[in-house]
């Protein structure tokens, strides 16, 4: 059960401004049925075309999505477009007395619908949609991810997923999100890229380092006893090897693999590697 504030419950059970505006000045649509939540926002300007006179919404989604939409329409009524364009997802969450962290993307959806509606009124393309598509499952661009990292001071992929949904589907883009987090946070600190970042190896680098180590230290030691070792495959953390020569019939070969080869690989290449015999 989610821990919703009374304000969230109130706006969910008694949503304000549900509906459509037939002659709306701006309409913004975000999300989709497949994503699990979607919001269609309508606003109407006053006679001078200065301030938002009316705002209405239709939402498909969970309690916090409905409450965020209701809150958004209440917040923007009476604002100029200039003022409205400064509304952030944090403003929506704050209006509701906070949202569970896993539900922050509902407030982000509200803000994005507002941006889309204003862009629709001004007849311009949505700036956030112009970036590189990072998360294909939920259609999230790098620009949206970068902004969320900056504005809400996000540090981990999990936090980015909570705010933007990016990475919450198949998970293929998780590495890319991690890179974006490092990029944004290093830009923010005017730091040299890569400093202090955790060691990350590409597969090729990993295989090369393992080969080098086997050649340099392991093989000479095994050959002294008439044995040998061959690298068969590297799959994630699993290093698959085959023992040759005297090692094949040696009773201590398993101990050699785990206590000697695996230990060496963990010390010098990656401490998560697991050696298996093919």
């Amino acid at each position: 059960m989610w821990n919703y504030t009374d304000k969230v419950k109130d706006h969910f059970l008694n949503p304000r401004n549900v509906g459509e505006i037939a002659d709306a000045d701006g309409i913004g649509e975000v999300g989709s049925l497949a994503c699990g939540d979607a919001l269609k926002l309508f606003f109407k300007l006053d006679a001078e075309k200065k301030r938002i006179a009316d705002a209405r919404f239709k939402t498909f989604g969970c309690a916090s999505a409905i409450a965020s939409s209701s809150a958004l329409t209440e917040i923007i009524k009476g604002l100029t477009l200039e003022e409205a364009s400064k509304i952030s997802n944090e403003d929506i969450a704050h209006y509701l007395g906070g949202l569970p962290k896993e539900k922050m993307h509902c407030s982000v959806m509200g803000r994005e619908a507002l941006e889309a509606a204003i862009a629709n009124y001004r007849g311009i393309a949505l700036p956030m949609a112009q970036g590189e598509l990072v998360c294909e499952c939920f259609g999230v661009t790098d620009l949206e991810i970068r902004r969320a990292i900056q504005e809400s001071n996000l540090r981990t992929v999990e936090e980015v997923t909570n705010f933007t949904k990016a990475g919450g589907g198949c998970g293929k883009c998780v590495d890319r999100i991690q890179e974006i987090i490092l990029e944004v946070r290093h830009e923010g600190r005017h730091d040299k890229a890569g400093a202090g970042a955790p060691k990350r190896l590409t597969n090729i680098q990993k295989i090369k380092m393992i080969e080098d180590l086997l050649e340099r230290e392991v093989r000479p030691a095994l050959r002294r006893d008439g044995g040998d070792i061959e690298l068969i495959d590297v799959d994630g953390d699993f290093v698959s090897v085959s023992l040759r020569g005297a090692c094949v019939s040696c009773k201590k070969s398993q101990t050699t693999l785990k206590e000697y080869v695996e230990k060496k690989l963990r010390e010098q290449v990656l401490d998560s590697l697991i050696v298996v015999e093919n």
């Binding site: 989610w2 419950k9 059970l13 939540d37 999505a65």
Partner: peptide, 14 residues
Amino acid sequence: EFVEGEAILLHLDR
């Protein structure tokens, strides 16, 4: 179809 489960559950909860 066209509605979301959590919203249904919270209404039932009332």
